[in-house]
Design a protein around this nucleic acid. Structure first.
Lengths: 237, 237
DNA sequence: GCTTGTCTGTATGTTAGCGCACAAACAGGC
DNA sequence: GCCTGTTTGTGCGCTAACATACAGACAAGC
């Protein structure tokens, strides 16, 4: 199992569409640059735009008890932000924040809905993606409950590596602590351990994956399971 | 906030449909009796039937590491089992097991899909229910991560109370341990504490809710949050 | 009445992660 | 070059939940 090959300026969901459907949709999209830590959706508020990440990636975070949060999804160029629109609900269930700076294709909600109505293949593709997202959500729930911080961190790094299309990406310990729902110190310890095993290296927020297959061994089964679900429903990487 | 009023032989999703749509669907349903601990779906296998619980209720459990599991959803007469069919996927993402014995309306998958195609209101209703289910899943994920066993147990009892339409229902400690993903002893301790507070009483698997508002105070915010989401999207209880 | 299996209560030692506090290393702006 | 804010590392006491083991209470069947 290797990293997802880089397809820099493209989105997999869009690529899977028939040419005409894709062209039609792309005609209504604008390319935008997402900046790190930008908040795209606030949980419980109206969805302003739909995004198809190309080189960027986005975290879905569910708020807990006011201050904390927990990541429940990660969207890269294999996915879409705003998927609940296909359920006829224009309220964001989660907070969406930019985890990896980069570009994305953006489309307004009314236009998206209109295109959705028009294109059967788009409907089909997005429904499948939603199924995968749900599976991923459940997997994450179980993982958070049962697995050690170090294994969860390894899993997260792999998922991010898949979506970043680069071996180095920017994330601080405190940010990871928020995402994984643990203390900052917990991340520091786990990261030190992974570094001691020469699986990663990092320096002031810049994390580099050194040994991908080693990381896969350090991660819990959840990573593998999730990928298997993706492949089964949405085709091969 | 009081308990959901009992609507014994009926399902809320079906009730919300226009008369003609409901009649049409009901004509293809058969009434079945579900027995406690019966496994209706196995995760990863083909969905055999769609169920609309009326007096029964069903747990969705995601398998972890082979032996353990974790509840990620609870379906009573406010919901449906087999919702992923509306996404065009006929593979069950979770294990479904009967948590509360009772009756349900059952319909075969092909007929269900055909009826779904025909009825716009049914599509609409089910899409909304799926949205609520996703929100619930995320809420559960966060709850499992951050909250103490006692609060989670209280929340689960409330959720079950809502779906059981009775103050007493049957669940053993070992079963609860499986559902909540903790040790059996952890449940015993939490249950003893709730009993000491005169919120519940139990005897060899028969749990009785004594003080509902007291339980609500003992539960985490998640219960309230989840209910609010339900009401917002699917109307009032 | 006895046995067997299920369910619940209790005990002991262990551990992963918590809260808090503080120090060190580093980067960028002035 | 100094100061300030950010990021990372370390230490210490605490606790919720873990693993395991066992005993008592109860129900049902023979």
């Amino acid at each position: 199992m290797s990293s997802i090959p880089a397809v820099p300026a493209a989105n997999r969901l869009l690529n899977a569409l028939p040419d005409t459907d894709r062209e039609h949709l792309l005609a209504h999209c604008e390319s935008v640059e997402l900046i790190f830590a930008e908040v795209l959706y606030l949980a419980g508020t109206k969805i302003p735009h739909v995004y198809f990440p190309t080189s960027s990636f986005i975290s879905l975070v569910t708020p807990v008890d006011g201050d904390t949060g927990l990541e429940v999804g990660l969207i890269g160029n294999e996915g879409i932000l705003g998927i609940t629109l296909i359920l006829g609900v224009d309220i964001a269930p989660f907070q969406a924040l930019v985890q990896g700076a980069g570009s994305a294709l953006r489309i307004s909600v009314p236009v998206f809905l209109q295109e959705l109505e028009r294109s059967r293949p788009l409907q089909q593709e997005l429904k499948r993606y939603l199924y995968v997202s749900m599976s991923q959500l459940a997997q994450t729930a179980a993982c958070n409950r049962f697995h050690l911080v170090e294994a969860r961190l390894a899993r997260w790094l792999l998922m991010t590596h898949d979506r970043a299309h680069a071996d180095t990406f920017h994330v601080t310990h405190i940010f990871l602590a928020y995402i994984l729902g643990v203390r900052r110190v917990g991340i520091t310890k786990a990261a030190l351990s992974l570094q001691a095993q020469k699986l990663i290296s990092y320096r002031r927020g810049d994390i580099t994956v050194l040994d991908r297959s080693g990381l896969e061994a350090a991660a819990c089964e959840c990573y593998r399971t999730e990928r298997a679900t993706y492949e089964r429903i949405l085709g091969t990487y």
